[in-house]
């Protein structure tokens, strides 16, 4: 099955990101296709490479980059939501790219299921 994922909450203050990561890994482990992970609303904070939470507390930003490196998952940050929150090319974590909301719509159309985390 083809899945797309929408992440709407930040990595540090909300469970949504950790759940989305687990789900993304399960999709790939299960032999399914992950069309795209789109980061919107506070979800764009997942792409901020300047985040450095205390050791052992939260490492989801790095985990997304690792997932992208291992599995070539397309990680897309909404440009408008990112600009509003100070997430831009200058502080973008590896493996992410910045684009428009149209990429979310396209992912929803191309995937059999769009699964939302947060909000």
């Amino acid at each position: 099955m083809k899945f797309a994922i929408l992440v709407n909450e930040g990595p540090f203050g909300h469970q949504a990101t950790a759940s989305a990561l687990s789900f993304a890994q399960a999709v790939l482990t299960g032999g399914h296709e992950l069309v795209r992970v789109f980061f919107y609303m506070d979800g764009v904070y997942n792409a901020n490479r300047l985040a450095s939470p205390p050791a052992g507390e939260c490492s989801t930003a790095r985990a997304w980059s690792e997932l992208a490196a291992e599995s070539r998952v397309d990680l897309v940050v909404c440009i408008a939501a990112g600009m509003a929150r100070g997430v831009r090319e200058a502080n973008l974590a590896p493996g992410f790219r910045i684009s428009g909301l149209g990429q979310m719509v396209e992912a929803a159309v191309l995937a059999d299921r769009l699964v939302t985390f947060g909000a």
Binding site: Y40, M41, A80, A81, G100, L101, G102, M104, V105, E106, A108, V109, A119
Partner: peptide
């Protein structure tokens, strides 16, 4: 595809309503 956006939160106090509206408009543009 048939998209449904479900607004469940008050308009102010959080940014959800405003950012859902952006998604709605983009979906229509597509």
């Amino acid at each position: 595809k048939r998209f449904m956006y479900v607004n469940r939160k008050a308009p102010h106090g959080t940014v959800y309503a405003l950012e859902v509206l952006e998604m709605v408009l983009i979906s229509a543009m597509f």
